[in-house]
Nucleic acid binder design. Structure first.
Lengths: 345, 345
DNA sequence: GTTAGCACTCTCGTTTGATGAGTGCTAACA
DNA sequence: TGTTAGCACTCATCAAACGAGAGTGCTAAC
């Protein structure tokens, strides 16, 4: 059996109506709402075919049909109007991104909020992976007696500070020596690389200043073991899930929210599979607790390099066209924003 | 009518049984479970009195009784066994706080997690109010051309960095001048005070270096307007609320979780009303969305000064004795931990 | 190939009735 | 006078029964 044009029209009608109403859609409804010029009976015949093809299914006899995962997939790939976002949304995004927020973290979390607002779904935004950015420069500043502020500047421009114990007998000059060693050895290496390969070089270099060694190593450890080197995940609009009729079930909600609390899971959802906007529908998802969710995601860039991704999570019954349009546009404007922000340098 | 000893015993029995089972408790149940040496009929008579006194109420005729807010209050104030925590819990807290975590933010968020684990309730922890801590010292470090890293050290030891635009023609010496002005003028003043009173002084001081003025002011603005100067609120175990039978209602959950997203509301809940552990029961709470919740909170200190508070939120039917014990012990160990941590200076 | 008609299925909301827990009242009892 | 047993009454809860409505699949006619 083949998909002909009428079958496509009917499938599109089913998907669109189900997305809008969340109710199984029957042959009569289609005949009434969508002008296909055929009677309900004909539609019923076609629907039986579509069911055989695996694109739609019946929750129970005598209910209408709902799209299967395969049905949504076919819809997204072949039937959907090209994703386009309303000028309203476009304007809103432009107004919001025009508010120049300097700190990168705020840009990201702001993005998450905006994304969930626009889509009425839950947004997931993955921030830049700090640990991956190469080491740039290190400074020491006076703090309390016996402690110093270590300021580390990464090559991507991120700045972090840590308070380190240095012992009371360490002078400013000695600190400066340590900083110099670090700056020479580490410049341009990612912290992950440092951990693996360069640690012993530094170790041997610093044996010359024996009394600083232990402290220097522990300082480094403080940076390397910092969990926050992991890319951070921002969520927005988690409550929107409660508005979806498919999540009127307490156990589902509990599992979902539990999953929301584990960054690791969320990261897997967003892992970029391709260029541009990617769509993962229902069971295509590897993670059990998101089997009846769909994810639309895309990556954003800084200076041409992919540094993170954004996405929305919703029930499989979501407005794919609208969401894809918004996610697409948001990554573009986020990339622009970051690039422009950097350009100021 | 007066409370006599038997009435007290019965009220205590009702509260305890209801806390344990979440079911309205009847006269027969009390006679069976608690050995009061009287028949159900007698208990019924007493219960009628207790109802008249406003300590218990009936959800409907022919159901058992449940404690009213006033009943819980009487229980907490007069009937409850003194809050005592199990040695298990005590050990767990001690093991957990022994893991020396250096960053204050992590200590706080770790506290929130632990608190919710121990109580099976939702924990709310209010971090120190950064903005309140007086300004201490300021440094500038080189960054990109035209930008510098401004490192601000507060008197409480907090370190923050901000990237500021300085214009291409500003030299390191000029930056140093600005830092000196700021350090002299602001040392020891809270940022809030600075905003109100000292801004124009700095302004007039800096007119001498006209070309730095605008940038200097915007730098200051960046620090002063920083939202993160607000005390941050950490939540733990929000999902625990879903396990409470009183929150098996979707609208309630939605309202509750919506409230969780607004830091302002949560802060009001924790606002310290007295020394030591304070208990707010149901309707005693001013905030509408928490009318059927109780809050147990206490403040923690750094060097004798109250800098934040922790608390747990649960249904009015919660184990007050246990929760109060845990909250009390946690504030103490948190205060110890912070004080010890600081002592290292 | 399309459509009308019809019997059939299944969900959903309502009704009904039985069950059981719990009360309040009264009268008997110590 | 306080306590208890007995009893009628109330009300939520659960399950079964039922009707209405929506939708299908099949058949026969167009």
């Amino acid at each position: 059996m083949q998909m002909d044009e009428r079958k496509q029209k009917i499938l599109r009608a089913i998907v669109q109506d189900y997305i809008a109403t969340a109710e199984p859609v029957g042959s009569r409804t289609i005949a009434r709402k969508f002008n296909l010029g055929v009677s309900p009976a004909t539609i019923r015949n076609e629907m039986a075919d579509l069911e055989e093809l695996g694109f739609i299914e019946q929750p129970h006899t005598s209910a209408g049909r709902i799209p299967s995962d395969a049905g949504y997939r076919y819809y997204v790939d072949c039937l959907m109007d090209t994703p386009k976002l309303s000028t309203e949304d476009k304007n809103l995004i432009e107004i919001e991104t025009a508010k120049r927020i300097s700190e990168i973290e705020e840009v990201i979390s702001h993005t998450a909020k905006l994304l969930s607002q626009l889509t009425s779904l839950t947004s997931i935004v993955m921030g830049p992976q700090k640990g991956r950015s190469p080491f740039g420069q290190m400074y020491f500043l006076p703090y309390q007696p016996g402690q110093a502020i270590m300021v580390v500047v990464k090559e991507n421009g991120a700045v972090e500070n840590h308070i380190v114990d240095i012992g009371n007998h360490v002078t400013a000059e000695e600190l400066q020596q340590v900083a110099t060693v670090f700056n020479n050895k580490l410049k341009g290496y990612s912290l992950a690389q440092v951990k693996k390969t360069l640690l012993h070089e530094i170790y041997s270099e610093l044996t010359k200043q024996r009394h600083l060694l232990d402290n220097a190593l522990s300082m480094l450890g403080a940076v390397l073991d910092d969990d926050r080197n992991e890319e951070k995940v921002y969520l927005g609009g988690t409550l929107n899930m409660l508005n979806q009729p498919e999540f009127r079930d307490f156990d589902k909600v509990k599992n979902l929210f539990r999953a929301f609390e584990e960054d690791g899971r969320l990261k897997k959802l967003l892992y970029p599979t391709q260029e541009g906007v990617s769509v993962t529908i229902g069971g295509e998802n590897k993670l059990e607790e998101f089997q009846d969710c769909s994810v639309i995601s895309a990556t954003y860039r800084l200076n041409g390099e992919v540094i993170g991704s954004i996405g929305v999570l919703g029930p499989t019954r979501m407005d794919y066209a609208k969401s894809m349009g918004i996610v697409d546009f948001m990554t573009r404007s986020l990339t622009d924003l970051l690039t422009k922000g950097r350009k100021r340098t």
